[in-house]
């Protein structure tokens, strides 16, 4: 059992982080907290993707080692697939990180708009103000 848990520990970590993020997004009353949760949530997904790319057994970072020009000249025979980590998830996650930070940026701008209007960032207070003023 322990073996089983340890053998997939990064998956467990990603699940825990995802749930922490999700909880903060749904359950926290402070809007900034929600955004912090959103960041955690998104980085959990990124962690999951990065974990997909991992190869055990001596694989290294996906940057070609050795003489690039020589390899370029002699074809691909020397490149061993097993010795490099799968680069595709990394590519995807570069995009995802940028997307996540862009979302955060937009969300923070909206947050400032909300603060200008309601002078508070607590969900329950905002809802109360909305109810009172009919806005």
């Amino acid at each position: 059992m322990l073996e089983y848990i340890i053998s997939k520990y990064n998956f467990w970590v990603y699940i825990i982080l995802l749930l922490i993020g999700l909880y903060a997004m749904l359950g926290k009353k402070n809007l900034v907290k929600k955004l912090i949760g959103m960041n955690i949530f998104q980085s959990a997904v990124i962690l999951f993707y990065v974990s997909i790319g991992v190869k055990k057994g001596g694989a290294t970072v996906p940057i070609f080692m050795g003489d690039a020009h020589a390899a370029h000249g002699h074809g691909q025979a020397i490149i061993d697939v097993a010795s490099y980590i799968n680069p595709l998830p990394h590519v995807l996650m570069l995009t995802a990180i940028v997307v996540s930070i862009a979302t955060t940026g937009v969300a923070l701008a909206v947050l400032i708009l909300i603060f200008r209007r309601y002078k508070t960032l607590e969900l329950d207070e905002i809802i109360k103000i909305r109810k009172d003023t009919g806005v």
Binding site: P62, I63, F64, A68, A71, H72, G75, Q76, I79, V81, Y84, N86, P87
Partner: peptide, 13 residues
Amino acid sequence: IQEALEKTATPNM
């Protein structure tokens, strides 16, 4: 992994 270097001449896959 196999072709990136040859096709794109970039060592970083």
